[in-house]
Design a protein around this nucleic acid. Structure first.
Lengths: 161, 161
DNA sequence: GTGGCGTTCTTGAAGTTTTAACAACGAAGT
DNA sequence: ACTTCGTTGTTAAAACTTCAAGAACGCCAC
């Protein structure tokens, strides 16, 4: 990390500023929209989405955490909260006595179905409606490159950190 | 928000997934790097950067909050923490008795100078080194479009929310 | 100058995330 | 079976953010 630091040039600085600016605003925007319309922050909504797409609407805690890119600890707290809301319930894993499955309840599914259209509309209005199809492809490619460079390979936890 | 919901097509879904994936990983990555090397999360670091670039290394609370895109409440708490660390101090605003200036201390400046090279290197490694110059321009343009659509015009607070 | 209204900033409480530690189980060798 | 080590998920405490409320000041019409 030492040596002569290679600072960002003007173009890079501008891009970095714009990136921070846009991602912050978008995240806040989505959080507020979902908090208002679905009663939960964006990340919690994402957990319900993951569960809804999984076979039998259930996932092992670790797998769900991996998909959502959060720590197991954070997931534990999140599921506790969603359980209190009745959107999710826990279930012992038959094959591994250590394991827990998070299961999307019917009520959780209902909340998801009710809030999904509004959420998609918000994402569309904030992002896709403002970009050309070409830009959508560019964004995907850029994000894929970045994500590839940050993948799991840390020593401490297998997949994060 | 009603009517037939226009769902995301395959390309859009892929882009959205990639976006969430990449931004989450990058944010976590930067937070951890700065927490480790500078003893504060990314957003706090950004506050010090803002102050360091301001005339006389000081800014009104509201202005700083606007620049950093956070609420005044959040900033109040953040500055309280940075003040406890000795990186920042508060100062009454001469022209407006309601106002407060956040001032970057010498010690804060030192922390910034020490951690900046490592931070830039991290940003570079995670982002710019993985993108072509063309992609950097594309990213900036995309982010600018998105940010433009989310600007201040909410009713409640003038500039956020 | 006084009342009314908006702005500036702070505060306490509740909710969320991080960090470190831990209990319980699984896997594999001996 | 026993030991060792890795994995799974949770928890308590500290740190951070959000939310609602409020104190203090500026501005302006009257």
């Amino acid at each position: 990390m030492a040596g002569e630091p290679r600072w960002l040039n003007d173009e890079e600085q501008y891009a970095w500023q714009s990136y921070l600016h846009a991602t912050t605003l978008l995240e806040d925007h989505l959080d507020r929209q979902l908090q208002r319309d679905a009663g939960m922050p964006h990340i919690y909504y994402g957990l319900l989405v993951q569960l809804s797409q999984a076979p039998r609407r259930r996932l092992r805690m670790t797998e769900l955490a991996q998909n959502a890119k959060i720590t197991r600890s954070r997931l534990s707290h999140a599921i506790a909260r969603l359980e209190k809301n009745g959107w999710v319930r826990r279930e012992d894993c038959p094959s591994d006595k250590r394991g827990q499955n998070a299961v999307l309840t019917d009520e959780g599914m209902k909340v998801l179905e009710e809030s999904a259209p509004g959420h998609v509309a918000t994402v569309r209005a904030a992002l896709f409606d403002r970009l050309s199809p070409e830009q959508v492809r560019q964004l995907a490619e850029i994000c894929r490159s970045v994500a590839d460079g940050l993948q799991p390979q840390g020593a401490d936890l297998p997949w994060l950190r």
